[in-house]
Computed example of a mutant assay.
Amino acid sequence: MKAVTWQGKRDVRVENVPDPTIQEPTDAVIRITSTGLCGSDLHLYEVLTPFMTPGDILGHEPMGIVEEVGAGVPDLMAGDRVVVPFQIACGNCWMCLDGLPTQCETTQVTGEGMGAALFGYTRLYGAVPGAQAEYLRVPQAQFGPIKLPEGPPDDRFVYLSDVLPTAWQAVAYADLKQGASVAVLGLGPIGDMACRVAQVRGAGQVFGVDLVTERLRRARERGVATFDLRDFDSEKELLTAIRDETDGRGPDAVIDAVGTEAHGSAAARLTQRASALLPRKLSGPLAERFSVDRLAAFHTAIELVRRGGTISIVGVYGGTADPVPMITLFDKQIQLRMGQANVRRWSDEIMPYLTDEDPLGVDDFATHRLPLSEAPHAYEMFQRKQDGAVKILMQP
């Protein structure tokens, strides 16, 4: 089959690889009809290279048609249309039953000290072959895949794999009361959708911050009060402008949808680039012990949120030696929540919004649809924020 493989920093290729097969009774194999390119994939493209191996198959946002199931998957059959969550979880362990499938005790990557295995996401999360491919082996298929109705196009449901539950959890973790205010830092796919989720869940004021024209336009057209970083000479000016909209206090919650590659973190960016250029035998151990993130967005969130407010971190961070201003977090009594989205925890709550009325705007959420063969171009375009690329779907 054809699959998108990682070969090095900013080097992805579409190659022929072996077709997946049933290996365990709880496996399924699906034929992928749509697969997304995620901002998290760009971290592999640029920053998290020390944890990658040439030939790794990328991607974690798939939907498609079941081709084959193992004997331990009673509720799926060939021909079923499904969307597959990005994490791999059993559904039966203590963590899964507590609504935390990203911490699944069956699939935890204990050798790396990490949580549940993920599709297509570094050796830290199990080095499981990913979903930017023609076919995908799905472990723990007795729990993960979400069965879908026939008829509506893929765009209606494909975002249940990651974008929708990640944005939903970001807003849930922000702990917003009806009429509350929330600022979303970063208006990429997750930040954009988090704004939409906050609106349908009753937020009174939704502010969006970014520096990419197309992203700002999309949010503004849906009623978000947008702030273009390029319009401000300093962070203080930005903070003042948003606080002026909230009686001077700051928003009740701030969602950091940026993560480790934040604009404005020059020193950390240099460190990340230097680490990525080292031989993998050196860069891996160094990254595990001394890696740092670009923390500009997180620091902005700390300064911006009102006293007693909540910061919800949904952007991916990977540092182990990040300097955090504990005195400010403590003094402002900030609540801090974060983590990978627990897809099956939220999917039933989200499904009623995927109606013909389309309140979340999923039908036209994608800015680009490309064949899988153009994946290298898609990665480059998305990483460079060219041609208005906000969300890219690929079809094998």
Rank of each mutant, 00 (worst) to 15 (best):
E357I: 00
E134A: 12
D231C: 08
G309D: 10
L372P: 07
T320M: 15
R280G: 04
P352V: 04
L164T: 11
P165K: 02
P145H: 04
W94C: 00
M114L: 09
S275E: 11
L76E: 13
T240K: 13
P352L: 01
R13N: 08
G91I: 09
L270R: 14
G259S: 13
V138P: 06
A194D: 04
F51C: 05
D358L: 01
T271L: 13
G223E: 00
C93V: 13
V197R: 10
Q395A: 09
Q205F: 07
A198E: 09
Q132K: 03
Q335M: 02
D19C: 01
G250P: 05
L44F: 07
P251A: 07
H263S: 12
G151L: 04
L370V: 13
R137C: 04
G315I: 10
D231I: 00
G204W: 09
D364G: 02
A180C: 07
A225V: 11
A219N: 01
T49L: 07
H263I: 08
R215A: 07
R10I: 01
D348L: 01
S234D: 05
R369I: 11
L97E: 14
R384T: 11
A141D: 11
R10T: 02
E46K: 07
V184A: 13
K147I: 12
P285D: 12
Y317N: 15
G264K: 09
Y379N: 06
D348P: 00
A341H: 03
L185I: 15
I242N: 03
L211Q: 06
F298N: 13
I242P: 03
D27T: 07
G186S: 12
E237M: 06
C38V: 06
M95G: 00
T246I: 04
V171W: 02
V224F: 03
W346Q: 00
V128M: 15
E61D: 12
R123Y: 12
P323Q: 14
A296G: 04
G248W: 11
D75H: 15
D210T: 02
G91C: 10
R344K: 14
A127K: 15
R345F: 01
L270M: 14
P145N: 06
